[in-house]
Nucleic acid binder design. Sequence first.
DNA 1: AATTACTACTTGATATGTCAAGTATATATT
DNA 2: AATATATACTTGACATATCAAGTAGTAATT
Lengths: 141, 141
Amino acid sequence: MNKVNASLGFFLDLAKIQAVMARKFDGKLNGLSLSDFMILYRLSLAEGGKLRRIDLAEQIGLTASGVTRLLLPMEKVGLVKRQSNEHDARVSFVMLAPGGKRKLEEAMERAGLFADEILQPEKNKRLAELSGLLSDLAKSF
Amino acid sequence: MNKVNASLGFFLDLAKIQAVMARKFDGKLNGLSLSDFMILYRLSLAEGGKLRRIDLAEQIGLTASGVTRLLLPMEKVGLVKRQSNEHDARVSFVMLAPGGKRKLEEAMERAGLFADEILQPEKNKRLAELSGLLSDLAKSF
DNA sequence: AATTACTACTTGATATGTCAAGTATATATT
DNA sequence: AATATATACTTGACATATCAAGTAGTAATT
């Protein structure tokens, strides 16, 4: 049987690494799931401090449905809050609640250290390069 | 609020791209899930055509438990078969069944074409490079 | 103004995979 | 030889996300 082509091979490698790294990160995000963390992080970067749910979904690579499900408990627990849009009753913005801001800061600190530890950027000199390629790729679809 | 460090940023990009690509591939693998596909592919490359469940898990980046659950329906449906190890009663090997071999061939063909289509390797000249870096990284943990 | 089509979000049913604990067997230690 | 430890796998309970379908509101077309 044959080997897979380069594009498909790339995708398979990606899937594997992601699965392994995601498990490693589990429990290192200050009690947040990876998706929770991504949500808080994206909100912290958002202009005006708020995002429509659908844009949030797009930014973290999940579906709108997934975002709805993630946000429900986060809202209950005081990590994020909801704001309606006066110009369009369909949309509801999400924004960081004070609890979410604190939690995110702590998680970023810890997760950043841990990420350096497992990726060892001083040894993997080409990591920055890889990172750049990756985010170009992300933009391309 | 601040940006995330380079290592953590890399991981976040990775997670996002993986999620998006995995959804794109859904339905392009000849009726197989991505994990099913990975299992069949790894079995096709394995020396002697068989693997212990635990090695299979390691190769595709899942846990042993996940592999057990994936394999059960695949066995029922005739994609893989099981073989016990005469030297160690704890292990059970997995190998491609004839149906799995056929299915894999078709899936590789289709998925390979689709992967080229979305990654456009002729345009993304640095894809091969990225791929190499990625699999080096995979080996490092 | 009424109809049609689209967009934002939510919900029901389901798939996929984890962790922790359990079973059975094998290996190492006393 | 008996006990302790480790390995390979499986299972129960649960988390996370998907898709397809539904609701409600907005925009475009007739």
